[in-house]
Simulated assay, not measured.
Amino acid sequence: MFLPTPDDMRKIRLELNLTQNELASRAGVSQPLVARIESGDVDPRLSTLRKIFNAFDSARKERILVRDIMHSPVIHTSSGDSIEEAAWIMEEHGFSQMPVIDNGVPVGSISTDQIVRSMTDQDIRKVSHLLVQNIMDDSFPTISQTTDTNTVSRILEQNPAVLVLERGKVIGVVTKHDIMRMLRG
């Protein structure tokens, strides 16, 4: 059975960029107790160690960054592509929506809902030759690759996907499915 030394606990806390006060607050113990544990002045109860290590686990999950879970390259369509081409890409990959990107820059999004809506009032042959730019919606929100996954989760509550940008160009995408996959491990 592995029992951490006071030095082990201090190293973990520092790796997670937590102050003693932040760790104490997360663990529901006092900052002086954390200081005494780290200095080796006191042997903590097992229940206290459990609280501290649960706080460590929680902090680790918060520190997962977008670059660790994003998909790259981003499967997309362009605004000048036909709706038929966009529909084929979505069908091929099992997507219900995807970004519209021109020269690496996000310009909109397209979904199966938009395509179906465009078909209700027009001849299907005409719709298939329409350009994506004629029915595309707003672009997905954008973030940097160093954004933490908690922030991304909040953005995804209102959006189907988030695009990851570096120097103004799309380099990745994160979806709700990617966030849910974090539960497994």
Rank of each mutant, 00 (worst) to 15 (best):
G108C: 06
I110M: 04
I12Y: 04
H177Y: 12
D123Y: 04
M1Q: 12
G40L: 11
P6E: 12
H129I: 14
A35L: 08
T112A: 08
P6L: 12
D137N: 14
L23Y: 09
V29W: 08
P99W: 06
F56D: 09
M9E: 04
G185K: 05
F140E: 09
L49H: 03
A59K: 01
L163V: 03
P99G: 09
R63N: 02
T175A: 07
M1Y: 12
N134V: 03
R184M: 11
M90Q: 01
S39H: 08
M119D: 05
L46Q: 08
F53L: 14
M1C: 09
R67L: 00
P6Y: 10
E22A: 07
T112R: 09
S139G: 09
S139R: 15
N159S: 08
V174C: 11
T120N: 06
V74Y: 06
D113S: 12
G108L: 06
S111E: 09
K51W: 01
L18S: 05
A27T: 02
V105W: 06
L65N: 00
R36W: 13
V152P: 00
A24W: 02
P73W: 03
V170A: 13
V34N: 10
G172A: 01
N54H: 06
E62R: 03
D57Q: 14
I89L: 11
I89T: 11
F53A: 07
K11V: 01
T112Q: 11
R167C: 05
I135Y: 05
Q158D: 13
K176E: 07
D8H: 10
D81Q: 10
H177P: 00
L46A: 10
D7Q: 12
R154S: 12
Q145P: 01
L183N: 05
V105D: 05
K169I: 13
P6H: 12
N150P: 00
R167E: 15
D113R: 15
S139P: 07
H93K: 10
A87P: 04
E166P: 02
I52F: 09
I110R: 04
L131C: 06
R181N: 14
L14K: 15
L3P: 01
P106C: 12
M90V: 01
G80Y: 11
N21S: 15
K169M: 13
R60A: 10
R36M: 15
M98A: 09
A87G: 07
V174D: 09
I12E: 07
I75V: 15
T147L: 00
S79Y: 07
A87N: 13
K126T: 14
L16Q: 10
P4T: 03
P44K: 07
A86D: 03
L23C: 09
L46V: 12
Q122D: 12
Q122K: 15
R184W: 10
D8M: 05
T19N: 06
S96P: 04
H177E: 13
F53C: 08
D148T: 00
I37D: 10
W88E: 10
T151P: 00
G108D: 05
V29M: 08
Q145H: 03
P141E: 03
N150E: 04
A86P: 03
I110N: 03
I75F: 05
P32T: 12
